[in-house]
Design a protein around this nucleic acid. Structure first.
Lengths: 152, 152
DNA sequence: ATATTAGTTCGTTTAAAACCGAACCAAATA
DNA sequence: TATTTGGTTCGGTTTTAAACGAACTAATAT
């Protein structure tokens, strides 16, 4: 992999994750680890590459470790930790995100329940919206399960 | 609907939307309109209820109108606009959000393509991740279409 | 013409997120 | 014991988002 390609790519990943609610350095950090391998990168390498302060790297890294997206391996007699992405949880994470649909469904359902009108067009649309999200909350895990079965 | 229930509910919606990336007043505004009907609420009513400045309301409201989530009707000989939620786009919006999967898939695909190793475990995991998101990008619209067919 | 009213625009304040550097800790080394 | 190294913690600064208020526009009403 040529270095220019890596730098460009990491920046791309940074933007993508930034748009999806991650802080910029976390996004770049992920990008950098994506272009690396399972042997991992040291704190210093990351710090240098993403060009951020040690504290920023430390914080971003720890948050990602907490979330389970980043893991590290150690080598006895070597103080360094070798950080790498754990790609497995990404799939489960998506399944969890499907619970958004179910909580939105109950939010809408709650709304319907406190309304006086149950038969106005608006109330009907609310019920439909609730039903739609309930449906998604059911279907999403199903298709994910289906995929998991196909790839195991 | 009793007023306490409405106030509480609006706050709940506010929190939900805030957690999903909306500014607080926008969330409350949505909540207020959810507890209203298709006849709409005036700017002044919204302004009073969400207890925010006119400018905040104006900005939040206009953004939601741009996104198509809020519409308004007018009455000739009446300067006021009557704002209400349009619940129809919510469904389509979800379909659009499914495109997240496809763009993430290509981001990962791009990563695979610039890597030197194509057969390491990590590279294989990347490919799997890409495949998974491609799969979702295909399946999501399908299940949404299925629902749309069932409810039309 | 004057006054209201519905809503917008603009410049400022407030508050929160992101980041930084310096001081620090703890393990390993010399 | 003194030094280096890998990483954390803390306080402060910068940046960005959110909200505000006051001044403004444009339409209606008096």
């Amino acid at each position: 992999m040529n270095e220019k390609a890596r730098v460009d790519y990491v920046e791309k990943v940074g933007v993508f994750f930034e748009q999806n609610g991650y802080p910029p350095v976390a996004g770049r950090l992920i990008g950098y680890l994506m272009t690396s391998n399972e042997k991992g990168r040291t704190f210093y390498e990351i710090h240098q590459f993403v060009n951020a302060s040690k504290s920023s790297v430390s914080n971003a890294l720890n948050k990602l470790v907490e979330k389970g997206l980043v893991k590290y391996l150690t080598i006895s007699g070597d103080r360094k930790r070798y950080f790498f992405l754990d790609l497995k949880p990404w799939i489960g994470q998506t399944k969890e995100r499907a619970e958004f649909f179910s909580s939105f469904a109950s939010l809408v359902g709650h709304c319907v329940s406190i309304r006086d009108d149950q038969d106005s067009e608006f109330a009907r649309d609310l019920k439909k919206l609730e039903a739609f999200h309930k449906y998604l909350a059911e279907e999403m895990p199903k298709i994910i399960d289906k995929w998991e079965k196909m790839h195991s």
